[in-house]
Amino acid sequence: MSNCVLYEQEGSIVTLTLNDPERRNPLTGNTMVAELLSAIDRVHRDVSVHVVILTGAGPAFSTGGDIKDMQRQMAPDAPLAEIRQEYRLGIQQLPLAVFNLEVPVIAAVNGAAMGAGLDLACMCDIRIASERAKFAESFVKLGLIPGDGGAWLLQRIIGLSRAAEMSFTGEPISSELAAQWGLVSKVVPPEELMPEALQLAQRIAVNSAPAVRLTKRLMREAMHTRLDTLLELSAAYQAIAHKTEEHRSAVAGFVNKAPAPRTST
């Protein structure tokens, strides 16, 4: 049985590890996508999970598509309609699943994130990187286009001009430049990457799980809706949040810590 994704849970934090290190964790030519979708569905159904960390085993985060699988798709007897369906029912399900996941996802980019590997990191809410990481929207180097949503994701993170530069040249950038461009929020030494990711996950997990889930959903909706529509949705979500046990407990905690009001004499 294949085990391309390792699923580990400690408390309310799940770590998903891309686990095909000998081939540098490709997303195709194996069962990686199917296993990631299964893991995401498992997280989605488990209310005890508050945060997810996504990382790669070995020296790479993910180098994207598998060359041998590309050779199969290039074959003269590979029908165009079937290749299209492979994308629609395969890797294109991944950005939809990650985008719609209510809990925050932190990408701990341990090494190269190339092509679809970069796009996978972009699907996550927060990205932190090892000093050894590098990033490339490298599809054009293979005569391809971002077939997994990268053209939508990357420009929303780093802006149109920089996304165009990465997409049209296919050239890699360092983790330091990725931080300057806002692609990652932090760069740390390799040995500090997972402790840093776990510390960040813990800082998120201590907050109200319903509030964090609703906040992520609100931020997702804000990407494509009008302000007045978002305000209406915010009012509805806030009404829900006011009725949660987490909100009541938090307010009670603040009230109990507050100093007694002064009385005039």
Rank of each mutant, 00 (worst) to 15 (best):
R72W: 06
V188I: 00
I13K: 01
I91Y: 04
R156G: 15
E137H: 11
A133Q: 02
A239T: 14
C124T: 13
E22S: 12
R217M: 14
Q155E: 14
L142W: 09
N30W: 01
G150A: 03
P172L: 12
K141Q: 15
L233Q: 11
G29D: 04
Y7V: 08
N25F: 05
T215M: 09
V98N: 02
F139I: 00
G143Y: 06
P21A: 09
H44T: 05
E10R: 10
D148Q: 08
A151H: 10
L37H: 01
Y7M: 12
M219G: 06
E8T: 11
I67F: 03
R45H: 13
T169G: 05
P26T: 03
A252Y: 04
V33H: 08
G182Q: 05
K257N: 12
A81Y: 05
T169D: 04
T28C: 09
E10G: 10
A78Y: 07
D125H: 08
T215D: 06
N30Q: 07
K186H: 14
E22G: 08
A252S: 13
H242P: 00
E102K: 08
A178P: 04
L183V: 04
A222Q: 02
D125S: 03
Y7I: 03
Q93T: 09
L198E: 09
R72M: 12
M219A: 15
L183D: 09
A258F: 06
A178Q: 06
E171N: 07
I173C: 04
D77S: 13
K243R: 14
G115D: 02
L54D: 03
D46P: 07
S62C: 07
M194I: 14
P189I: 07
A235D: 15
A209P: 11
I173M: 10
G11D: 11
T31N: 10
L231H: 04
P104R: 00
F254Y: 11
P261R: 09
L214K: 10
L198V: 12
A241M: 14
W152K: 01
G150L: 03
S264K: 08
S12V: 00
P210F: 09
V49H: 03
R42V: 05
R127Y: 00
A235C: 10
N3P: 00
Q92L: 15
K134N: 13
I158Y: 03
S38Y: 00
V255T: 14
S130N: 06
M223I: 04
E221S: 07
V212C: 06
V187Y: 01
A116D: 15
